[in-house]
Structures are given as C-alpha cells and as structure tokens.
Amino acid sequence: MPSSPRSDPPDAFRGLVEKAAGKPMRTAVVHPVDRLSLSGAIEARDAGLIEPVLVGPEDKIRAAADEAGMDLSGVEIIAREHSHDAAQSAAKLAGEGEVEALMKGALHTNELMQAIIDRSAGLRTERRMSHVFVLETPAYPKPLLMTDGAINIAPDLKTKRDIVQNAIDLAHALGIPEPLVAILSATEEVDSNIVSTIDAAALCKMADRRQITGGVLDGPLAFDLAVSAEAVATKRFVSPVAGRADILVVPSLEAGNMIAKQLDYLAGAAAAGVVLGAKVPVILTSRADSAVERVGSCALAKLYGRWLEVSH
C-alpha cells in the first residue's frame, strides 16, 4: 500500500514569518540552476523575507526560471561559470558585507561550506559552525530546535560546546529567553561505555561554570524523557528540562538527521534550518523541502541576522 503524501502542519512557521517582517535581507543564492532551488529563493522574496542575488551560470538560471514560469525581472544576477566559482564569489560577497546571508542552491552542502570556511572569505569566527533544525509538529506544543544533524559528523566535546551555544543563541533570536536544553543519549545515566553520556555530563558542568550561557542544560537524557511529560512522571524523573525541552542536542550527525527526518515524515512535522557560527547566517535547503520549509528557513536566517546585529 503506498504511503500517504507528506504534509506540513497548518500554518507552519507563520509565526516566524510574521516575526521576521521588515526590510528584506539581501541574500546571495548560490548556484540556483534548477526549478526547486530557484523557486525557494523567489518564494522567500515574495514573502518579503529576502532580496535575492542569484550567483551562478546565467543561462542555466534563466532556463530554470523559464521551466518554472518565473519572472526574474528586477532580480540581480552575478554570472559565474560553475558551482565552485559561484560558492567562492558568494562567500566573498558576504565577507565584504555586500550580502547579509547565504542560501544554498543546486550544489552539494560540502562545496558551499568549503567556500565559507576558507579564511580568505572572511566569514569565520571563533565558533565552530553548526546547523540547527527548527521543527513544528502537532505532536509537540512548541517549536523544537534540534542540533546538529547536517554539518558536524562526530563532534568532540569542544565542538559540542559551540553547537549548544549556537542553538541557544538561535533560541534567543526566536524570542525564547532561557531555552531548556536536553543533551540526548540512549540513557539518562552517565555510563563510561557510552561516550555521549560523559559528554552530556561535562556540558552540563560547563554550563554551571558559565562556559555555556543563556540556557538551562540537563543530560544525558533519553529522547522520551526530553519531550514526554508522561515518561517523566512514569520514571519519577526530576529535571528542570525533562518533558519540556526547547533544544535537543544529538550526539552525532546521523542521530540528528534521523530524528529530523522521522519527525518530518512520520510525525507530520515541518522542518526549517540554518547554519550558525559564521559572520552571516547560511540557509541550507534540501531538494525534498516544501515551499513552507524553504520560506521558514529564510525567516530563521533573518531573525538570527537581526539578533546578531543587536547582540554584537
């Protein structure tokens, strides 16, 4: 029996888009040479979120627009021959302050990120870059941030510290003043055989020592204890975070990617996402993302960019 088509929750990310209203964010869209990547940028423009600057082969960009029936009148195009050149040029534009954000088009994430982390682009900070999904699902009463399911494959403790702080900063940008952060593992007990439980305990102590600020941390926590008040009551577990987490910190990219896609495909979630830790936000979209998710990702980037301007 075929599966039913995936659908987003009604009004997904509407609150984010409304909160992000205002002057559009000038955004370099890197190599948007197919219908999906180009339409994502144009949809975000039509929502008033971004002013797209299309960077890539002009003939392919215009062909994609013709295929999708889109009018590119008034949209700036910076012609570059191939994706590698487009990524480097877009990163340079961001480093020079010519654009306020970067948006992935039809190229591999690794290719875009290599251009961003190149020191000549001037986008690196003292922080490790990391990705945060923001998920809205009927199964949970509030937005759920989840990190890192897209950039850091097997982060060590130092990298996890930056991953947690980046997510807390995004929560602040979204209007969550003191987010509750669950450091996930397979168990709530510290087990010397499971490295992620030791890292979780260390991260919580780092928060106690103000090496991580702005949120309330607890961990290790199993997934059920992080999000289910019923599981917390059944296990008689005492925690300031359990059952009502705002942020889920996963032990590895594989775990994060699986959780996000399971919520997206089986729990009716909508998933937006952004890369943090560079001097500008980076919007990573997938070919499988819906229009709502693409627009939601641009709203996230705009809110985070606005927060960066105020906080720095």
Results as ranks from 00 to 15, higher is better:
76 E>I: 02
22 G>L: 02
136 E>H: 06
10 P>C: 00
103 M>W: 09
168 I>D: 08
249 V>R: 04
192 S>E: 12
56 G>I: 04
267 A>K: 02
159 T>P: 08
219 G>E: 04
84 H>G: 11
168 I>Y: 09
47 A>H: 12
303 L>N: 00
264 D>L: 14
62 R>A: 11
123 L>I: 08
257 N>I: 00
64 A>I: 06
7 S>T: 14
125 T>F: 06
91 A>E: 07
302 K>T: 07
271 A>K: 00
78 I>E: 12
34 D>R: 01
312 H>Q: 12
277 G>H: 13
43 E>L: 14
213 T>R: 15
296 G>L: 08
12 A>Y: 01
68 A>F: 05
271 A>N: 03
229 A>M: 12
86 A>F: 08
105 G>H: 09
81 E>H: 10
62 R>Q: 13
191 D>C: 09
233 A>M: 08
216 V>F: 00
4 S>K: 10
263 L>P: 11
25 M>N: 05
135 L>K: 08
182 A>R: 09
210 R>S: 13
216 V>P: 03
252 S>E: 12
293 E>V: 11
273 G>E: 03
248 L>H: 02
159 T>W: 08
117 I>F: 14
161 R>L: 12
42 I>V: 15
176 I>L: 04
217 L>T: 12
119 R>V: 02
165 Q>Y: 09
283 I>F: 03
169 D>K: 11
85 D>E: 15
6 R>D: 05
117 I>L: 13
216 V>N: 00
73 S>M: 06
187 T>S: 15
77 I>D: 03
119 R>D: 11
230 E>M: 11
173 A>V: 10
28 A>W: 04
227 V>D: 06
98 E>T: 05
199 D>R: 04
